[in-house]
């Protein structure tokens, strides 16, 4: 971009203006995109919830749970639920701290949330490897076997996102979360990070609700 120096100052203003325009659009896109992502996820998990209720209500051949029915291990279920919920809550609390300007507090919270979420993925894999029923032994066992791998992948993807956010936060100076940074570049970087973090928080909280919802379906109902 050697041309830059030869541009008249007017063109530099225009470039800054357009950069600002698309910066603003990108912030909004993160906001809109996270909402649509939740919509798509809701329909995806809606399909599984539909399968659950449909098979349950039909109870084909009396085998919604079947004669030799074994419940999935409650211990695993509760552990996973707690891990995911606590991860979401800790991360949400961290978000409130970084909004107040405390970058370090969020970083700590995010690391904890990352650890807990990853632990949930690991525990879920352990449970799927030691299910007390055959996948096809009943309608219930089928839907259970369907749903948790998808949840697991969603958790893993969310944790990947959180890890990226943690890495993105590192070069940002802590002071720039408290007051307007000196340059546009830094201000934009901080705002982009914040919008991405907000989008992540929304999606991760939504995933926590989905986890709770399926916990109620599979372990409580």
């Amino acid at each position: 971009m050697a041309e830059q120096t030869t541009q008249p100052p007017n063109e530099l203003d225009r470039a800054a203006e357009e950069a600002g325009f698309y910066h603003e659009a990108a912030l909004n896109a993160a906001w809109t995109g996270s909402r649509f992502a939740i919509g798509a996820l809701a329909f995806l998990y809606g399909a599984f919830a539909f399968a659950y209720f449909y098979l349950r209500s039909i109870n084909s051949e009396g085998r919604w749970k079947g004669s030799g029915y074994h419940a999935p291990q409650m211990g695993y279920g509760v552990t996973i639920l707690v891990l995911v919920l606590v991860s979401a809550v800790v991360q949400y609390a961290g978000l409130q701290r970084i909004k107040a300007g405390a970058k370090g507090a969020w970083q700590a919270a995010a690391l904890v949330a990352l650890l807990l979420g990853t632990a949930a993925v690991v525990v879920q894999i352990l449970q799927l490897l030691s299910l007390p029923f055959q996948p096809g032994s009943s309608g219930f066992s089928s839907v259970f076997t369907d749903t948790y791998p998808v949840l697991l992948v969603s958790w893993l993807a969310a944790m990947l996102w959180l890890e990226i956010l943690v890495m993105r936060a590192r070069p940002l100076t802590a002071i720039s979360f408290l007051e307007q940074p000196p340059t546009y570049a830094e201000a934009f970087a901080v705002q982009r990070f914040q919008s991405s973090l907000s989008a992540f928080t929304l999606v991760w909280n939504f995933m926590a609700v989905v986890t709770l919802f399926f916990f109620l379906l599979f372990y409580v109902l």
Binding site: G136, S137, S142
Partner: peptide, 13 residues
């Protein structure tokens, strides 16, 4: 993995 989501005789539909 032989789930039975769509197999009526095994509790699917």
């Amino acid at each position: 993995v032989q789930t039975a989501n769509f197999v009526n005789t095994l509790g699917g539909s």
